[in-house]
């Protein structure tokens, strides 16, 4: 009797816990996804419909909003700017980050620990505190209001160094030593032995920094004023929101926002598997 009672009890507890989990996850997901869903729905609404709290779905989908964004605005140009600048920045960040992380993990030198502390200390620094010195440096180098300026001021990512270091630390040092004995330079050991074994860390690093660079608003808007060198967030603002607090066509803003994130979604779809691994610290090496 007792066993049966406890069986029943444990069954009901299990059902309750499943319902609880589903509820919590469901509600959280709804909260997370709602702005996205709302954006997608709003981009197909008319200007007045967007501001009407009673209409959730568009009465008649306004596909013209998308064509307007794609063909009658500068948004595609800004997207292109953001995309290539982000690719270049991320590529440089991967090389610099991997080199520093390799040195921190695999090379023995006296100041190794101090160097890591300094690197981490700069991570603690509020970004805003670096704006003025960075601005002055770029001004001195004559690189304000240019792609070069945007790129050169983002060549090192502390977050990336940290992420790669954590990944590299999972690799037995013997492997790098074996590569060295096989005749590999540190450079080769990094790219031919360490990198393939920490692929997920690299992909996570690349993806996260691509997203943040692609969406970056504050810093590029401080150092650029010509529309030609605008990145997408800045472009979006200048296209539909700048110099006006009224009469904003929110449907177009939503359509632009939706179009703008398409490259990111595509990228995420391709790298999702690695992305999750990289965050979890899994490097694909077992035992």
């Amino acid at each position: 009797m007792n066993t049966r009672y406890s069986d029943k009890r444990s069954l009901s507890v299990r059902i309750l816990s499943i319902i609880g989990k589903v509820l919590i996850l469901g509600v959280t997901s709804m909260f997370t996804a709602f702005p996205f869903v709302w954006m997608v729905l709003s981009m197909l609404k008319t200007k007045t419909e967007v501001m009407n709290p009673n209409s959730f779905f568009p009465a008649v989908p306004q596909w013209s909003n998308i064509t307007k964004v794609l063909f009658d605005s500068n948004i595609p140009k800004y997207m292109w700017n953001s995309t290539w600048v982000s690719i270049v920045i991320v590529a440089i960040q991967i090389v610099t980050g991997a080199m520093l992380a390799y040195a921190l993990v695999f090379l023995k030198f006296r100041t190794n620990k101090i160097l890591f502390t300094i690197v981490m200390a700069t991570y603690m620094l509020p970004v805003a505190a670096t704006y003025i010195p960075s601005y002055i440096i770029l001004a001195n180098w004559n690189m304000l209001d240019s792609f070069r300026g945007i790129i050169i001021s983002s060549t090192v990512s502390i977050f990336g160094i940290f992420l790669l270091r954590q990944g590299f630390m999972q690799i037995p040092k013997g492997l790098v030593e074996a590569a060295r004995m096989d005749g590999a330079t540190h450079w080769r050991a990094l790219w031919e032995v360490v990198c393939p074994m920490t692929k997920s860390s690299f992909i996570t690093f690349g993806l996260m920094n691509f997203i943040s660079t692609y969406n970056n608003y504050m810093w590029p808007s401080l150092i650029t004023k010509t529309k030609d060198v605008y990145l997408v967030s800045q472009g979006l603002r200048s296209e539909f929101l700048a110099n006006t607090a009224v009469n904003i066509d929110w449907a177009l803003v939503m359509a632009s926002s939706a179009v703008v994130i398409v490259p990111l979604l595509v990228l995420f779809a391709f790298t999702q598997k690695w992305f999750i691994n990289g965050i979890g610290g899994e490097t694909g090496i077992k035992g």
């Binding site: 013997g174 030593e177 074996a178 590569a179 060295r180 004995m181 005749g183 032995v193 074994m197």
Partner: peptide
């Protein structure tokens, strides 16, 4: 090490 032209077998094999 890469310029000493000597090979090494490691305890845990260190295969890639």
């Amino acid at each position: 090490p890469q310029n000493r032209d000597i090979a090494m077998v490691f305890q845990n094999y260190a295969l890639y």
